[in-house]
């Protein structure tokens, strides 16, 4: 069952064509790894899916309904599509628990005790039940990113977008975050994941797409794209990332 359908998506920044005609169907339970050189538009693609950036052309269809541009509709869409950022973007003036509760309280208007219970459960799921009262300044990078994942999960999203969730982390902290994402994969969550962790993509993704020139240059199963790429651009990109172990 297709839950997200993207067609003809295009985005320009100051005359520069970043995305030109992206077509993509996401089926329920799919885990899509998005690869591409720096500046190839991976973040822009993700941000266009939940309309954090306004696409210049094309449509995004969620559960059979094409998404309009009214803010009231977009805020609903963003509740159904969770997003996790490279820089975490946690709210520094709220505790870990406060961060996770915030969407439930302010956006969903959930009663405090209910929101608190729900947020506590999400924090426990990412292994941070004991850090609920900590402010972000007193969390490690890996812990911050796990709180950010819990914050997204609290809204019960049908689709999760990860934009390089481990790129800002010290190497020894990458594992704990990838572990959480892997467990979400095992639950059968639908997700799009921009990453440079090719080994992780190989083992966790059900499909890999490679972005270049603002289009999907090559896509297929992890085996097809990562081990036996057909296109030259994909091959040279992978060659430059040879340090990964499949």
């Amino acid at each position: 069952m297709t839950i997200l359908k993207v067609s003809g998506l295009a985005k320009r920044f100051a005359g520069q064509e970043v995305l030109r005609g992206i077509d993509l169907d996401v089926t329920k339970g799919e885990r899509i790894a998005v690869l591409g050189a720096s500046g190839s538009g991976k973040s822009t693609l993700l941000r266009c899916l939940n309309f954090m950036e306004m696409p210049d052309a094309g449509t995004v269809t969620l559960d059979g309904r094409t998404i309009g541009r009214r803010e009231s509709e977009l805020t609903l869409v963003r509740q159904r599509i969770g997003m996790v950022f490279q820089q975490f973007n946690l709210f520094p003036h709220m505790t870990a628990l406060g961060n996770v509760m915030e969407g439930l309280r302010t956006v969903r208007r959930m009663p405090r005790d209910q929101a608190q219970a729900r947020a506590g459960k999400e924090l426990a799921r990412v292994g941070l039940a004991d850090k609920a009262a900590n402010y972000p300044a007193h969390l490690s990078g890996g812990q911050k990113q796990r709180v950010a994942i819990a914050r997204a999960l609290a809204m019960d999203p049908e689709l999760l977008l990860f934009d390089e969730p481990t790129s800002a982390l010290d190497p020894e902290l990458v594992g704990e975050v990838l572990g959480v994402i892997r467990s979400l994969a095992e639950e059968g969550r639908t997700m799009l994941l921009v990453t440079h962790e090719l080994g992780f993509a190989y083992h966790v993704a059900t499909r890999v797409i490679f972005l270049a020139d603002g289009t999907i240059h090559e896509q297929g199963t992890p085996d097809e794209v990562l081990k036996h790429p057909k296109k030259e651009r994909t091959q040279s990109f992978l060659a430059r990332h040879k340090e990964f172990s499949l």
């Binding site: 963003r78 509740q79 950022f85 973007n89 709210f91 969407g103 302010t106 956006v107 950010a148 609290a154």
Partner: peptide, 11 residues
């Protein structure tokens, strides 16, 4: 990023 974080949860 703070705007991003807020909008991403539907604010």
């Amino acid at each position: 990023g703070q705007w991003d974080g807020a909008r991403a949860i539907g604010m």
